[in-house]
Structures are given as structure tokens and as C-alpha cells.
Write a protein that binds this DNA or RNA. Structure first.
Lengths: 189, 189, 189, 189
DNA sequence: GATGAATGAGAGTTCATTCAT
DNA sequence: TATGAATGAACTCTCATTCAT
């Protein structure tokens, strides 16, 4: 017998996200995915039970990975200013450089039906804990975690997908956003 | 006679948004829409050229309407504090009470392919002008419009879709959010 | 709008039975049926909910029709001898001349899964009543209805599908079969 | 070593018949069979050339075996009365106790396409000889062999698959059927 | 001999859209 | 205007079978 080919599954994942970026959920069929991944449609079903669970699994995997990736930039001895700056900057460039991953996650998570089928994930729970901790350490203001989360991650998404007249302006805009958020959330700034 | 037509089209629009909330873009077909709207599939094509332009037209109509609706709460003589409070509050309750409309717009606008087919809209342009104006009038801080926009509208979306343990906590969370935005964006606060 | 076309449905039914005679249940797909009936695969689904219920409905329709057809040859004033002779002869020639119908019914009814999904039919109930009546009128021997039924209808099926060296021998065989049944089941013979 | 092989093939045969009883020919695929038999799909192809010939071989094997089994109850010195009684009784209980085998054979043999691919079998030929012999020995009436065969084996099938209100009634029904057949086919009764 | 991975072909079904009324 | 019938194309998924180990 042949071994299950991790390379094949990777191709499928990449194809899924590429296609969903380019054609949306509607325009992404199993046969297109298979063609883009260089495998047979039937092969997709060796790695995933069906289309829905394929999307869900890929979503959960990349969702978790993304949060992990973002949090990697934080180290315990950082000052609050840098934590926010690093986090937002890292997210911003992640979005710019991983459009497919980002847009896949966004499209998936804005669809209530898809979202509702997901088991709860570790990333958000850990993030919650982190925020609570930063408040205890008097780094962040004592706001509701939902609010802290909302300010840390949604504005940067909004500007990252909105193109700018020039690279330079974009950087200034990003730095300004970081500054606004630092001022809004940090205890001493 | 005229009224009956408009009524049919209204039914179609409502059916579209209801279905897309419940089943997502993938699960929403013309025949399902027709059934839910109480008309024949062929009738849909009297009001819309095809499926894609139907979705686009409905999106643009409700997008514009939503912005109009939000801005209706602002009057020229209001102080900055109230402008922000009213705007955010209005958006929050709009999302809560018009889930289908909100989620339809969100799903549509997070899909790059769909988004790309849209002509530019009046709402955002007007909003841009408004922000510029509020800066000129020394009400808002002199931040980049994209940042102002992002800071004003994305966090509230994030918390509005995230359920809370109780109505009371939700209101506190909302008030806190408003307060953070006011402090961050208003010149004198 | 167009009217539902009875002719189309008739074509589908005929195609189904023809194909199932020639290729069996395994070899009979919706697209083959559609091609044979001269319609599109999608059209089949206008007339039937799905493949299984299509087969079931056709089975039930032709099953009932067949029993009706057989019983048409009986009139109230016939003597027992003729009742049996007519019934058997009629069934025999029905099988010979309507191979597709007969084999479709046979294949369907020997498949427990298919059979189990069928609502109870009127034909067998009426037949039961008829047998009971004929016993009361002292025409048939007082045997269990199941036995009467089995004796009347299963042997003729067996010989009808078994080809004979010549037409002449086949007729002799049929007449002998009738004679045996008459002798076995009739009260006075 | 040798034993293990035979065991695998036995599992496959049993799985085939079980599945075909439960799901019919349509619902029975190689992978389902393999799963039910506890082997790999590829393993099936070690024992059988392809699906069709697998079904055919199993059919022929069990068909022959069944006839052999039925005829085992006859010994040369039995009187006609007992020959018929034993044969029918034995068949009846075989059907009751070997539903999968019986229904597999029935489904296969009512499908003309499948039937047509079978080489002629020894069982029926031997049975034919037996009937001819019993006629020569003045035990059975001088009827056509097809008719004798039809009366001996088809009515009992019909009643065996038709459930009865009680075990007791079923036995009475069976005894009555035996009596009818004895009277119909035996020379002196 | 035995396996699970892999596949092209085809299954049943639904799709967006058009037709005839 | 409005319809349900009709359709070719495409959908998701499974099939029988083969491959590589």
C-alpha cells in the first residue's frame, strides 16, 4: 500500500484557499480544487469526509495557526507599547502577505452557518487569558476582554484590506493606527 | 398594479437575505429563493438580470441604506461626544435587530470576487466627507480617514455579533466601547 | 407556463422498464433512463422526487395494473374451471407479451429493501377477498389463502420464463399446468 | 496459511450476501463488502476477477449447494409421499434459516442480465433426471418436468417469505401446502 | 498475499437559466 | 407580468478498479 501523502493534502489546502480568494465560496467546487491541486476529485475524499468538513478543518487549522503566529511575537518581558505595536504590525503584514489565508478565514467566519459547525478553538481562549493577564499586570486598561480584542484586531483588518495611494502613506497610516490603539488601551502611555 | 410588483420584489429581497443568513451563499439557490419568496423562479428574472447582479444590486441597495440610516442620527449642532455615542449605538442595535441585512452585507463584502464587481457607492464617499468635515471643525483628532473609519465601525461590529452572558453586561460593554472611542478620537474629551 | 407532459412521463416509465429488463437495476442510471426517454436528466426529477421513489411509484402503479388486468377476465357467472383457466392463461400471456413489466415487478419485489418501502397495495387485498368469496361459494377447496395464491400464481411464472423447444410444446405444458391447478384447487372437478 | 485464505474468502461471501439482503444489489459496493468482510477492497480482487464474476461465482456456488442440500433428504427407498413432504419442508426451513442465501439467489436469478452470464449448472440437470426417474418409477404423475419443478419449488417459496400471524398457523399452512402438492403430483395418494 | 492510497468515470441530484403559455 | 416545465451543465460524492509498497 501507499502511504498517505502529506504533500497531496498540502496541495489541496493551498488550492482551496487560492480558489476561495479568487472565486469565492460559490465559485469553488471540488473538481476545481482537485484540478488546481493536481489530484483527482476522488482523492480529496481520502483526506476529507466531505466538502463542508474539509472547509471547516482547513479553517480551524489556519485559524489556530494564525493566532499562534501572531502571539509568537510577544515575549514576557516586553513593555505594553511594544506588545501592541508588534501584534498589530505582525497582523498587518500577515494579511498583506497571506491574502488567501486571511480572506479564507474572513469569508468563513462571516458565514454564520459555517461558523456554527465549528468546535470551539484554543486560540481565542488563550488570547482571552493573555488579555486578562495583561490587565492584572497593569499593562492594559481594565476594559472588557471583548472590547480589548475588538480594538486590537478589527481596525487593523479594515485598513489592511484597503489599498493606499502609496506604500509610504500606508506605513504612516499603520503607525498612526498603532499609536491610537496604544493610547486607547495602555494604562501608562 | 405597481404596488404588487414592488411587493414581489420586496419578498425576493427578504427571502435572499433570510436564506443567506440561514444557509450562506453556497446554500442559496434561485429556486430556494423563489420558493421562500412565494414566486416562480422565472419571476426572479423579471426583476433581476441574473443571480450575480441580483445579489450585487441587493447588496448595494442595503449597503447604502444602512449608511444612510446610521447617519440620520447625526444633526449639525451635535457635540462630538454625542455624534460618536449615537453612531455607535445606532449601528449596534441595527446589527442586533437586522441580523439578515447585516450578515448579508458582511458576507458579501468579505468576498473579494463579489466586492470587485461593485460600482463605487455614495455612502462611503459621503462618510469620508463627513469625517474630513469633523476634523476641520476640530471635533475629531486629525487622523487618517481610514483609521477614523476603522476605529469607529469595526470594533462595534465585532462585539455586536459576540453574544454576552446577559443583556446588562452587553450594555455595559457597549458603553465602555463608546467611551474608548470617544477618548481616542475626540479632540476635547 | 408549460403543462406537465403526460407523454414525457410515459416515456420515462417505458424507458425504466426497458432498461431494467436489459441491464438490471445495477445497470440502470438516471442518465441512461433520460437518454432512452428522450428527455434531460433534470426532467426526470420534475416527475419523481428521486430515483428510489421513481422505481417505487412505477412498481406500485404497474403492480396494481397487472392485478387489475388479470382479474378483468373473471365474470361473476363463470364456473370455477374457467376462472382458473382464464386467470392462468391470461397471466401466462401477459408475461410473454410484457416481459419488461413482468421482470421489472419481479426484480423489484424480490429485493427486500425496495419492497419494504412500499405502502400496502389494493390488488392483493382484493385478490384475498376474491379467494375467500370463491371458497364461500364452494368453488375452491377450503385451503389457506396464502396457499391458494401461491398455487395459482407462482407455478405459471416459473414456466412462463422458461423457454420451450417449441410453441406447441409450450401450449401443451401450459394446458397441463392449468389442469393440475384445476384438479388441486376446485371443489368439483 | 491455506486456511487463512479460505477464511478471508468466506468472510467476503458472507458479507456479500448479508449486504445484498440488507441493501440490495444497488446498495452493495466493493468497498462496503470489503469493510463488512474486514479486508481491503484490493483483497477482493485477489479472490475474484471483478465484481460481476464475484457475484456470479457466489451465486453459482450457493445455488448448487442449495440444490444439493435439498436433495440430501431423499433416499432411494422413500415413498413418494415422504419425498415431497421432506423436500418441501426442507426448502421451507432452509429459506427461513438462510434468508441471506435465499434472497441473494432469488435477486440474482430474477435479473435476466445476470442470469444470462451463467454457465449451465449441474443441480437443475440432476433434478431433471430425478423427476424423470420418479415418473418412470410410477411415483410421480406423468407431467412435464417444468411443471413438476414449478409445483414442487415455487409455491413453497411464496409462502416461506410471507409472514404468518403465528408460528402455529405457519406450520398448518405448510402442512396443507404439502398435502395439496402431494395430491396434485403423486400417482397414488 | 495483502493493503490503503489513488483514480477516471460515472452515479444521483441540483443549478441557473430559458421556454411556452 | 407571471408561471411551472424543461434543460445542459455542473455539482458533490462514490464507484470499480489499479498501483505501489
Amino acid at each position: 500500500m501507499r502511504k498517505k501523502d502529506d504533500e497531496k493534502q498540502r496541495c489541496i489546502k493551498i488550492a482551496v484557499m487560492q480558489l476561495i480568494l479568487e472565486e469565492g465560496f460559490q465559485g469553488t467546487s471540488i473538481s476545481k480544487i482537485a484540478r488546481a491541486a493536481g489530484v483527482s476529485p476522488a482523492t480529496v475524499y481520502i483526506y476529507y469526509e466531505n466538502k463542508e468538513s474539509m472547509l471547516r478543518e482547513i479553517y480551524q487549522e489556519y485559524s489556530e495557526e494564525t493566532i499562534q503566529y501572531l502571539l509568537q511575537c510577544i515575549s514576557p518581558n516586553m513593555v505594553g507599547e511594544d506588545i501592541i505595536a508588534e501584534l498589530i504590525r505582525r497582523y498587518y503584514f500577515f494579511i498583506i502577505e497571506n491574502k488567501e489565508v486571511f480572506h479564507f478565514i474572513e469569508q468563513f467566519s462571516t458565514c454564520p452557518v459555517l461558523q456554527s459547525t465549528c468546535r470551539s478553538m484554543k486560540g481565542p481562549a488563550y488570547l482571552n487569558q493573555l488579555l486578562t493577564d495583561l490587565k492584572k499586570r497593569q499593562i492594559l486598561n481594565d476594559f472588557n476582554n471583548d472590547n480589548l480584542y475588538a480594538f486590537l484586531f478589527s481596525p487593523v483588518k479594515t485598513i489592511a484590506v484597503k489599498s493606499c495611494e502609496s506604500e509610504h502613506v500606508a506605513m504612516e497610516r499603520l503607525n498612526e493606527l498603532i499609536y491610537i490603539i496604544q493610547k486607547a488601551l495602555l494604562k501608562d502611555f
